[in-house]
Structure formats: structure tokens, C-alpha cells
Amino acid sequence: MSHIPVAVQMYTLREESHKDFEGTLRKVAELGFEGVEFAGYGDLTVKEVRTLLDELGLQAVSSHVGIEELENDLQKVIEDQKTLGSRFIVCPYVGEELRNKKGYRNIISILDEVGARCRKEGLTLCYHNHDFELEQLPYGRTALEMIFSETDDQNVQAELDVYWLKKAGENPVEWIQRHQNRVPLIHLKDMTTDAEQFFAELGTGGVDIEAVLDTGEDAGVKWWIVEQDISRLTPFESLEISLKYLKTKLPHLSKLY
């Protein structure tokens, strides 16, 4: 299995980051993660974050940036990513008011335009799914199918979230294979096997994480990104369990730490 590095989505550690952003990043490095995906930068400037990342040996993988900011302040977003040394920008979510035919058409237009500008700057725009994009729309397709089919695959790529695909009744591996070379980022999450379908530490639930990992090299995955939206343990305890599991499946991790 090839060396596809592993990052953490900092949303998992949002409360810890709010209290002590620098200290939280230091703990992420101590756990053994190779990179981070940002959802804000705490009370630090992007230059201060970059200095800290360099000190800790962490790579800035990507940042989640809302559609409004992408549309209205893209140049600053691009400059921030270049300062951080990040290659990817991710649109993470669309509000309920946009989840209709007109709204999705508008989103698709924005994504294609933003993605083209990012591409010119040497960056890649990705779209991150939840389960609602897999709901059947009145005109016969899902929103995620529309986004993939109606945007240029060089302008808009994917950050597939395996938990939300599974929750929508889909097979994550099939989605990764179907869109190979368009899925540079994968959110690794697990799901409890009971009716609640709660967020679970990797290797403890019903998502076939091992099969997902096995698809990575052929599909062109550049980063695995661990995220746990909510945890019944502390976030760091959950991340430690997930990373311990990944070390049994990804040999390069066990060699690093």
C-alpha cells in the first residue's frame, strides 16, 4: 500500500482549538498526524499558523471555506492558502435555502468559476458532501450527481465523506472508484451499527474503512483526513483510537511513530 499521508480535520477539535489553538496543533503533531485540514485559524494569523506548522512538521492540506466567502473574497482565500502551503480549498456545505433546483444550479456555476480561478493559481477546489446531496431530487437526479456531471472535472474535484455516503445508503468504495482521479481528499469516518448511526472511531463501526483504504492508490487519493463530528469520548481520545487503527492498516504510520 502506497504512502498516502493522514491528516486531521480541525473541526473535530473545535472546542480545544477555541481555548488554545497553538496547544491543540502541538497535540495533533504529538499524536502522529502528518497534516491538518483547517476550519478557521483560531486567534492566529495565517503567517503565524504557517510558522507553527513548519516548527511542528505538519503540512497544511486544505481549508474548509464557505460558499459565500469563496464567491465574495476568493483572492484572500487563495493568498491565505498559498501562505499556509496548502494545495486544496474545500467548499464544505450548502445551506437548506439552496437545496433546490435553482439553488444547486447557482452553486454549480459558482463552483465552476471559483474552481477555474483556483486552478490558475495552482490550487484545487473540492466539494465536500453530506447525506442530503444524495437525496433524489424531483427531476430524477441527486445534487451530488449534478455537481459532478455539470462542473469541469479539472475545476471542481471531490472530498468524499465516507460516513455521509454510508448514511445515505451508498457504498463509499463504489463512489471513490467511479470518480477516481477526481477524489484527492477523503474524509475517513466510521458509523455505529445500531439504529442511531452515530459517529464512531475508525475500525469500531460499520463502514468498511479497510476497503476504502485499499482503493486509495488506484483512485488517486492524495490525503486521508480523519474527522469525527461528535464524540462520546474526548476528541483527542477518539482521534487516538482512530489513528491507532490506521497504524495497523498503513505501514508508513507505524514507522513514523
Rank of each mutant, 00 (worst) to 15 (best):
M1I: 11
S2V: 03
S2P: 11
I4W: 01
P5E: 02
V8Y: 00
Q9K: 07
Q9M: 06
T12H: 07
H18C: 04
G23E: 10
K27S: 12
G32R: 03
E34G: 11
G35W: 00
E37S: 06
G42C: 07
V46C: 08
K47S: 13
R50P: 05
L53H: 07
D54G: 13
D54H: 08
G57L: 06
V61S: 03
S63F: 08
E69T: 12
Q75I: 07
K76Q: 15
V77G: 04
D80Q: 12
T83L: 11
T83E: 12
L84D: 00
S86N: 07
R87E: 10
F88A: 02
I89G: 03
V94F: 15
E96A: 15
E96Y: 12
E97F: 09
K101A: 14
K101E: 14
G103F: 06
N106G: 09
I107E: 06
I108Q: 09
V114C: 03
G115S: 11
G115M: 14
A116S: 15
A116Y: 13
R117W: 07
R119I: 01
L125V: 11
L125H: 00
C126P: 08
H130R: 10
E133N: 09
G140P: 04
R141W: 10
L144R: 06
L144F: 15
I147H: 05
D152R: 12
Y163T: 03
K166Q: 15
G169E: 05
E170F: 05
P172T: 09
W175V: 07
H179Y: 15
N181F: 12
R182H: 12
I186T: 04
I186H: 03
T193C: 15
A195G: 08
F198K: 14
A200Y: 01
T204H: 08
D208K: 05
T215S: 15
G216L: 03
G220R: 05
G220T: 02
V221D: 02
V226S: 00
T234K: 11
F236H: 02
E240Y: 06
L246C: 10
K247Q: 09
K247M: 10
T248A: 04
T248D: 10
T248I: 04
K249A: 08
P251I: 07
L256P: 06
Y257P: 01
